[in-house]
Write a protein that binds this DNA or RNA. Sequence first.
DNA 1: CTCCTATATAAGTAAACACTTATACAGGAT
DNA 2: ATCCTGTATAAGTGTTTACTTATATAGGAG
Lengths: 101, 101
Amino acid sequence: MDIHVIEKQLKALADINRLTLLACMKNGEVCVCQFVGVLPISQPAVSQHLRKLREAGIITERKAGNWKHVRLAEGLSPFVEAVIDGLDAIPVCPDGGDMRC
Amino acid sequence: MDIHVIEKQLKALADINRLTLLACMKNGEVCVCQFVGVLPISQPAVSQHLRKLREAGIITERKAGNWKHVRLAEGLSPFVEAVIDGLDAIPVCPDGGDMRC
DNA sequence: CTCCTATATAAGTAAACACTTATACAGGAT
DNA sequence: ATCCTGTATAAGTGTTTACTTATATAGGAG
């Protein structure tokens, strides 16, 4: 794998908010609307973080009406898998959560 | 492992010059004087990169007279190992190289 | 001691980054 | 059609990063 791609993926991983987003995806697909409120940042900031993860090939997106669902990409590089494996999963949409999406 | 430590190590890895330095260490200990000239940056820049790798716990240093030798730390986190595994080793001190150290 | 070499630190700078608020866009509901 | 909601983009700002040159430090050689 090209070293420039490795660098790009590492830069995408090297941020605590993006690591938290990935930890939320460990258990499967998540609606983006769940993230607003989980992180102490604004909705545009979440959107910008997700774009960076997508451009690095780490997540994929699925549009469903007004909502967007994100998940970990298939066939991630071993080192990306290893980083995510090292994160504790963060449950989203717990019982009583917002279930519109 | 604490997510802040993960973030710090990822930030230390997420730079093409530091990845190149690590690739030089895949085959074992290297004298720092070998790096000056391998990378297209100045000696202080190399020193600053090595400090960042050391502060993240990714490399260890050994002082030998005027020279300093660096190597990959023992017991690296699995994801750090995975990143380094993905790099192609870069040979230093090839035949005909500077053998003072 | 003085000189030289290897490395570290200081100080300054330009670019990249992560955030904000404001606004635009897209789709469903009425 | 209008309104509302979820998400994206634009523009601006403060912080961090990676580099430079200049200088300091440490250790061996003479």
